[in-house]
Amino acid sequence: MDSTFAADVSLSADGKLVLFFISAHNQSVQCSISREALEQHFWLPAGANDARTLKAFADGRQRITAAAERRMLKSSGAPIALNTAEFARQ
């Protein structure tokens, strides 16, 4: 899938999610990945600060985006929430 990854990345108010958008096929979808998934599959240390959390996301961006794209194919524009189970299958 040919998608564009928006530079618009932020943390949720409670710090438990990284929020981002992906765009593909004239569709933009809000996505999130849990901090737990970043800790378990993207080497984020437990208790890491916000800057380190966003760096872990940036470092794993290609894999995270690919997972979101797979989910996007199955959804109808609904927000996509990625968690540890999504990456345990890979």
Score class of each variant (00 low, 15 high):
3 S>T: 10
3 S>H: 12
5 F>I: 15
6 A>P: 10
6 A>G: 10
7 A>F: 02
7 A>T: 05
8 D>T: 09
8 D>F: 05
8 D>K: 08
9 V>D: 02
9 V>T: 00
9 V>W: 04
11 L>N: 04
12 S>F: 06
12 S>W: 00
12 S>L: 04
12 S>P: 05
13 A>M: 07
13 A>S: 10
13 A>H: 09
15 G>R: 07
15 G>N: 08
17 L>F: 10
17 L>S: 07
18 V>N: 00
19 L>K: 09
19 L>E: 14
19 L>I: 11
20 F>W: 03
20 F>S: 00
21 F>S: 13
21 F>H: 13
22 I>F: 07
22 I>D: 02
23 S>L: 08
23 S>D: 12
23 S>Q: 14
24 A>W: 09
25 H>Y: 10
25 H>M: 09
26 N>H: 12
26 N>D: 11
28 S>K: 14
30 Q>I: 02
31 C>K: 03
31 C>S: 06
32 S>Q: 02
32 S>G: 11
34 S>W: 04
34 S>V: 07
37 A>S: 08
38 L>H: 01
38 L>T: 01
38 L>E: 00
39 E>H: 06
40 Q>S: 11
41 H>D: 03
42 F>Q: 03
43 W>L: 15
43 W>V: 14
43 W>Y: 13
44 L>Q: 01
45 P>R: 12
45 P>L: 13
46 A>D: 02
47 G>N: 02
47 G>M: 08
47 G>S: 04
48 A>T: 05
48 A>H: 04
48 A>V: 04
48 A>Q: 00
50 D>I: 03
50 D>Y: 04
51 A>W: 11
51 A>H: 14
54 L>M: 02
54 L>I: 01
54 L>Q: 03
55 K>D: 11
56 A>H: 05
56 A>L: 06
59 D>V: 10
60 G>L: 00
60 G>M: 01
60 G>Q: 02
60 G>R: 00
61 R>W: 05
61 R>V: 03
62 Q>P: 03
63 R>M: 05
64 I>H: 00
64 I>C: 03
65 T>C: 01
66 A>I: 11
67 A>R: 04
69 E>Y: 06
71 R>C: 07
71 R>G: 08
73 L>A: 15
73 L>E: 14
74 K>S: 14
74 K>A: 15
75 S>Q: 11
75 S>I: 06
78 A>Y: 06
79 P>K: 00
80 I>H: 04
81 A>M: 13
81 A>P: 07
81 A>D: 11
84 T>S: 14
85 A>L: 14
87 F>C: 00
87 F>Y: 03
87 F>Q: 05
89 R>G: 07
89 R>A: 13
90 Q>P: 07
